[in-house]
Design a protein around this nucleic acid. Structure first.
Length: 469
RNA sequence: GGCCCCUUGGUCAAGCGGUCUAAGACACCGCCCUUUCACGGCGGUAACAGGAGUUCGAGUCUCCUAGGGGUCACCA
């Protein structure tokens, strides 16, 4: 699921829950040509993972079912006929091909195409005859040629357009399915929908829906059009262009809670300075007033930061549980979990980072450069490191116990006795054990993690390299 | 192109006529802490798209311009 869709669902869920309402899941699948296998399941999965539970829906039922539009197919035509009777809609026999051709012609001439109401003038008899003959048809809305169509949006206020700008949209397609434009009106009314939150792209077509509500004399829902989530200033986020879906983010190691929290803040703010929210807290804080009118760019960096914050706040046990698969992948699954959690947790921004961070523990690059032993701040260079390791490695080998505490006590005492900076002693030890300049954790943690044999093997190897320089 | 919507730092954004020499967060930079890197702490750079008007007073209201987005389907 696209993160923009998830955010829309989130806001709708929050608003419903905040007002003790029901959050209803309805599958809009009136375009049979665009059916995608598995898409519906992904909707369920994403919503569940995000914690947005629904009160009524295809899988759990409810008193306003069915909740899948294709299963409601037969409900729409009677309403459309009613509209025809009222003169608010009419049968149209123009084929898609003809219209496409005329549209292309108009476009070629630089004109905008609008259906000319050709079939509106067909006599009732002719319509009956062609219908009886089984000729394919659609039903179009008969939009007045003058006057205004309008509606009120909770965020944007009063929106008004000239009816003359509006096209006679198709209500019932040739295959008997309703268009989204029609189905949503019928369903929202018959299913008792009070609030509609949806993307900006519907803002300009909403006045048309209201003409329908008025024709039926139905009460209109509250409309809340949400601004687009952008990738950059001029492009919206889109799956098509490779932008990450919710599922992609989770797979990459973002926590669902962090994604939801971040998403809630893209286009909405609580009015105070809080930015960390559980779903319950969000429910409490959410308001329509906090919704933004301008589009917002999705900031991966901020999401990353927020995810890191969530990870740091995890109980160590939970962290290990979540990072487990990546630790296993890197081949360090059997190492001391408590130490791993301690050194990794504050450094993990997204779970998948873990893999690369610990790889050296499983297998180090033994061909590392001697220059790694040089570090200005620690006052070391290969010569100094050689001297230190020559003396300290045998002593480490002689340690009766190879625990973090024992290692810590020995190394710290050693540095103190020799009057050297901790860094000067620890630098060569860490480099020899890791083969890399930057590691999560320091020499002591790494030594404990590797275990006596491997740690000493690496230290000896380092000594060897230094002796041969 | 017609119509609709939007416009505060690089990003998310607070601000709803005076308390704005404009908050907070991310990012960036610097310092401190430190066993490398992170974490943490402290500090810093950085914005009202432009122009008219209304008003004693405009980031806040109006109009115009510019820029951006959306929409003009038998897609949703």
């Amino acid at each position: 699921m696209h993160v923009g869709n998830l955010r829309t669902a989130l806001y709708a869920w929050l608003w419903a829950k905040k007002n003790n309402g029901s959050f209803i899941l309805r599958i809009e699948d009136t375009d049979q040509a665009r059916f995608v296998e598995g898409a519906e399941d992904m909707v369920y999965k994403t919503l569940r993972t995000a914690g947005l539970t629904w009160d009524e829906g295809p899988d759990i039922g409810g008193e306003y079912g069915p909740y899948v539009q294709s299963e409601r197919k037969d409900m729409y035509l009677p309403y459309a006929r009613q509209l025809v009777e009222m003169g608010k809609a009419y049968y149209c026999f123009c084929t898609k091909e003809e219209l496409d051709e005329r549209r292309a012609e108009a476009e070629a001439k630089g004109e905008s195409f609008k259906y000319d109401k050709h079939c509106l003038s067909l006599s009732k008899e002719e319509v009956e005859r062609r219908l009886a003959a089984g000729e394919p048809y659609v039903i179009r809305q008969n939009v007045p040629t003058s006057g205004k169509a309008d509606f009120d949006d909770a965020i944007f206020g009063h929106i008004e357009v000239d009816c003359a700008e509006l096209d006679d949209m198709i209500l019932i397609k040739a295959d008997g399915m309703p268009t989204y434009n029609f189905a949503n009106v019928i369903d929202d009314h018959t299913m008792g929908i009070t609030h509609v939150m949806r993307g900006m792209e519907y803002l300009s077509s909403t006045p048309k829906y209201n003409l329908l509500y008025d024709a039926f004399g139905w009460e209109k829902p509250v409309y809340v059009h949400l601004t687009t989530i952008m990738r950059d200033a001029t492009h919206k986020l889109s799956k098509r262009d490779g932008d990450a879906t919710f599922e992609d983010l989770v797979t990459a190691g973002y926590l669902p809670e962090a994604i939801v929290n971040y998403l809630s803040l893209v286009g909405w703010n609580p009015g105070d300075e809080r930015e960390f929210f559980t779903l319950d807290e969000l429910k409490e804080a959410f308001s329509l007033e906090g919704l933004s009118k301008s589009p917002a760019i999705f900031d991966h960096q901020k999401l990353r930061w927020m995810n890191a914050e969530y990870i740091r706040r995890l109980a160590p046990e939970r962290y290990i549980e979540l990072a487990g698969p990546y630790l296993d992948e890197a081949g360090v699954g059997s190492m001391d979990k408590a130490i791993l959690a301690r050194i990794l947790q504050p450094r993990t921004e997204i779970l998948s980072d873990v893999r690369d961070m610990v790889r050296f523990l499983a297998r180090m690059d033994e061909g590392y450069e001697l220059e790694l032993f040089t570090n200005k701040k620690s006052k070391t260079n290969p010569e100094i490191c050689l001297g230190i390791l020559e003396d300290v490695v045998p002593r480490l080998a002689a340690l009766p116990e190879w625990t973090e505490t024992a290692l810590h006590d020995f190394l710290m005492n050693y540095a103190a006795e020799k009057g050297m900076k901790n860094g000067t002693l620890l630098w060569p030890v860490r480099i020899a054990m890791s083969g890399q300049a930057v590691t999560p954790g320091g020499a002591i943690e790494i030594a404990a993690l590797l275990g006596r044999d491997e740690a000493l093997r690496r230290l000896e190897l380092g000594l060897e390299k230094l002796r041969n320089m």
